[in-house]
Protein backbone atom coordinates (compact mmCIF):
# COMPACT_ATOMS: atom_id res chain seq x y z
CA UNK A 1 0.00 0.00 0.00
CA UNK A 2 1.26 3.46 -0.86
CA UNK A 3 1.55 5.90 2.02
CA UNK A 4 0.87 9.59 2.03
CA UNK A 5 4.39 10.41 3.16
CA UNK A 6 5.78 8.70 0.07
CA UNK A 7 3.53 10.11 -2.61
CA UNK A 8 1.11 12.80 -1.40
CA UNK A 9 -2.62 12.26 -1.14
CA UNK A 10 -3.65 11.83 -4.77
CA UNK A 11 -2.32 8.30 -5.43
CA UNK A 12 -3.44 7.15 -1.99
CA UNK A 13 -6.95 8.34 -2.69
CA UNK A 14 -6.90 6.78 -6.13
CA UNK A 15 -5.93 3.48 -4.57
CA UNK A 16 -8.75 3.75 -2.04
CA UNK A 17 -11.30 4.68 -4.69
CA UNK A 18 -10.18 1.74 -6.81
CA UNK A 19 -10.80 -0.57 -3.87
CA UNK A 20 -14.45 0.55 -3.73
CA UNK A 21 -15.83 0.42 -7.23
CA UNK A 22 -19.45 1.26 -7.96
CA UNK A 23 -18.98 4.84 -6.81
CA UNK A 24 -22.48 4.84 -5.31
CA UNK A 25 -23.50 6.38 -2.06
CA UNK A 26 -23.01 3.00 -0.39
CA UNK A 27 -19.29 3.39 -0.96
CA UNK A 28 -19.12 6.56 1.10
CA UNK A 29 -18.60 5.15 4.59
CA UNK A 30 -16.07 2.46 3.59
CA UNK A 31 -14.12 5.07 1.63
CA UNK A 32 -14.10 7.47 4.57
CA UNK A 33 -12.96 4.66 6.86
CA UNK A 34 -10.09 3.76 4.56
CA UNK A 35 -9.03 7.38 4.33
CA UNK A 36 -9.04 7.75 8.07
CA UNK A 37 -7.06 4.53 8.45
CA UNK A 38 -4.35 5.60 6.03
CA UNK A 39 -4.22 9.33 6.72
CA UNK A 40 -5.34 9.47 10.32
CA UNK A 41 -8.16 11.92 9.68
CA UNK A 42 -10.51 13.36 7.05
CA UNK A 43 -9.08 16.59 5.75
CA UNK A 44 -11.10 19.19 3.93
CA UNK A 45 -9.11 18.40 0.80
CA UNK A 46 -9.81 14.68 0.94
CA UNK A 47 -13.51 15.22 1.59
CA UNK A 48 -13.59 17.47 -1.44
CA UNK A 49 -12.00 14.72 -3.53
CA UNK A 50 -14.46 12.15 -2.23
CA UNK A 51 -17.29 14.53 -3.12
CA UNK A 52 -16.00 14.91 -6.66
CA UNK A 53 -15.51 11.16 -6.96
CA UNK A 54 -18.96 10.16 -5.66
CA UNK A 55 -20.73 13.24 -7.01
CA UNK A 56 -21.90 14.22 -3.54
CA UNK A 57 -21.90 17.70 -2.00
CA UNK A 58 -19.31 18.16 0.74
CA UNK A 59 -21.98 19.26 3.20
CA UNK A 60 -23.60 15.84 2.80
CA UNK A 61 -20.33 14.00 3.34
CA UNK A 62 -19.51 16.11 6.37
CA UNK A 63 -23.03 15.47 7.69
CA UNK A 64 -22.68 11.71 7.28
CA UNK A 65 -19.17 11.67 8.72
CA UNK A 66 -20.15 13.65 11.82
CA UNK A 67 -23.04 11.26 12.38
CA UNK A 68 -20.47 8.63 13.35
CA UNK A 69 -18.13 9.20 16.26
CA UNK A 70 -15.24 7.42 14.62
CA UNK A 71 -14.26 10.17 12.20
CA UNK A 72 -11.82 12.97 12.90
CA UNK A 73 -11.42 16.11 10.85
CA UNK A 74 -8.06 17.24 12.15
CA UNK A 75 -4.67 15.57 12.09
CA UNK A 76 -3.81 13.79 15.35
CA UNK A 77 -1.71 15.77 17.77
CA UNK A 78 1.89 14.88 18.54
CA UNK A 79 0.42 13.33 21.65
CA UNK A 80 -2.85 11.58 20.98
CA UNK A 81 -4.78 11.15 24.22
CA UNK A 82 -7.40 8.43 24.42
CA UNK A 83 -9.70 8.40 27.41
CA UNK A 84 -11.39 5.11 28.20
CA UNK A 85 -15.10 5.43 28.95
CA UNK A 86 -15.79 1.70 29.31
CA UNK A 87 -17.82 0.38 32.24
CA UNK A 88 -14.92 -0.32 34.61
CA UNK A 89 -13.39 3.11 34.02
CA UNK A 90 -16.80 4.73 34.31
CA UNK A 91 -17.30 3.16 37.73
CA UNK A 92 -13.89 4.43 38.77
CA UNK A 93 -14.69 7.99 37.68
CA UNK A 94 -13.56 8.35 34.08
CA UNK A 95 -16.06 11.16 33.47
CA UNK A 96 -14.06 13.25 35.94
CA UNK A 97 -10.86 12.30 34.14
CA UNK A 98 -12.32 13.43 30.83
CA UNK A 99 -13.55 16.70 32.32
CA UNK A 100 -10.11 17.29 33.85
CA UNK A 101 -8.36 16.75 30.55
CA UNK A 102 -10.77 19.08 28.83
CA UNK A 103 -9.89 21.70 31.42
CA UNK A 104 -6.16 21.18 31.48
CA UNK A 105 -5.68 21.02 27.73
CA UNK A 106 -8.64 23.27 26.82
CA UNK A 107 -9.56 20.61 24.35
CA UNK A 108 -12.70 18.81 23.20
CA UNK A 109 -12.87 15.22 21.96
CA UNK A 110 -12.26 15.01 18.22
CA UNK A 111 -10.24 18.20 18.21
CA UNK A 112 -6.52 18.95 18.08
CA UNK A 113 -4.90 21.87 19.91
CA UNK A 114 -3.87 24.80 17.74
CA UNK A 115 -0.17 24.08 18.35
CA UNK A 116 -0.71 20.54 17.09
CA UNK A 117 0.57 19.06 20.35
CA UNK A 118 -2.47 17.29 21.75
CA UNK A 119 -5.53 15.60 20.35
CA UNK A 120 -8.27 13.99 22.37
CA UNK A 121 -10.43 10.97 21.69
CA UNK A 122 -13.01 9.17 23.78
CA UNK A 123 -12.95 5.38 23.33
CA UNK A 124 -15.45 2.77 24.46
CA UNK A 125 -13.15 0.24 26.16
CA UNK A 126 -9.46 0.22 25.76
CA UNK A 127 -9.09 -3.29 27.18
CA UNK A 128 -7.09 -2.41 30.28
CA UNK A 129 -9.82 -2.53 32.89
CA UNK A 130 -7.33 -3.43 35.63
CA UNK A 131 -5.77 0.00 35.28
CA UNK A 132 -9.06 1.97 35.56
CA UNK A 133 -9.50 4.81 35.21
CA UNK A 134 -7.01 4.61 32.41
CA UNK A 135 -5.86 6.83 29.57
CA UNK A 136 -3.54 6.06 26.72
CA UNK A 137 -1.14 8.60 25.25
CA UNK A 138 0.18 7.43 21.90
CA UNK A 139 1.12 3.83 22.77
CA UNK A 140 1.59 4.24 26.49
CA UNK A 141 -1.02 3.43 29.15
CA UNK A 142 -1.35 5.62 32.24
CA UNK A 143 -3.17 3.91 35.14
CA UNK A 144 -5.32 5.12 38.04
CA UNK A 145 -5.61 8.66 36.81
CA UNK A 146 -6.33 11.50 39.20
CA UNK A 147 -6.38 15.24 38.67
CA UNK A 148 -2.93 15.61 40.19
CA UNK A 149 -1.48 12.80 38.08
CA UNK A 150 -2.99 14.24 34.91
CA UNK A 151 -1.45 17.60 35.68
CA UNK A 152 1.97 16.00 36.09
CA UNK A 153 1.72 13.89 32.94
CA UNK A 154 0.74 16.78 30.70
CA UNK A 155 3.29 19.15 32.24
CA UNK A 156 5.99 16.60 31.52
CA UNK A 157 4.83 16.16 27.94
CA UNK A 158 4.76 19.89 27.33
CA UNK A 159 8.28 20.16 28.69
CA UNK A 160 9.45 17.29 26.55
CA UNK A 161 7.96 18.91 23.46
CA UNK A 162 9.67 22.20 24.24
CA UNK A 163 13.10 20.68 24.76
CA UNK A 164 12.72 18.79 21.47
CA UNK A 165 12.09 22.01 19.57
Amino acid sequence: MTTVAETGTAPVLAEIFARHPGAGRDALIPILQDIQDTMGYLSLETIKEVGAHLNLPVSKIYGVATFYNQFRFQALGKYHVQVCRGTACHVKGSQGVLDDIRQILKLEPGVTTADGLFSLEVVACIGACGLAPVIKINDEFHADMTTAKLDRVFKALKKEAKSND
Binding site: S59, Y62, T66
Partner: peptide, 17 residues
Protein backbone atom coordinates in the same frame (compact mmCIF):
# COMPACT_ATOMS: atom_id res chain seq x y z
CA UNK B 1 -24.78 24.25 1.14
CA UNK B 2 -26.25 22.92 4.39
CA UNK B 3 -27.11 19.58 5.90
CA UNK B 4 -27.71 17.81 9.18
CA UNK B 5 -24.45 17.69 11.11
CA UNK B 6 -23.68 15.46 14.13
CA UNK B 7 -26.38 13.37 15.73
CA UNK B 8 -28.60 12.90 18.72
CA UNK B 9 -28.80 15.90 20.99
CA UNK B 10 -25.88 17.49 19.12
CA UNK B 11 -27.65 17.35 15.78
CA UNK B 12 -27.82 20.68 14.03
CA UNK B 13 -28.02 22.22 10.59
CA UNK B 14 -24.69 23.46 9.32
CA UNK B 15 -22.33 23.80 6.41
CA UNK B 16 -19.44 21.51 5.58
CA UNK B 17 -16.91 21.75 8.43
Amino acid sequence: AIDFIDRGSQSHIGTAF
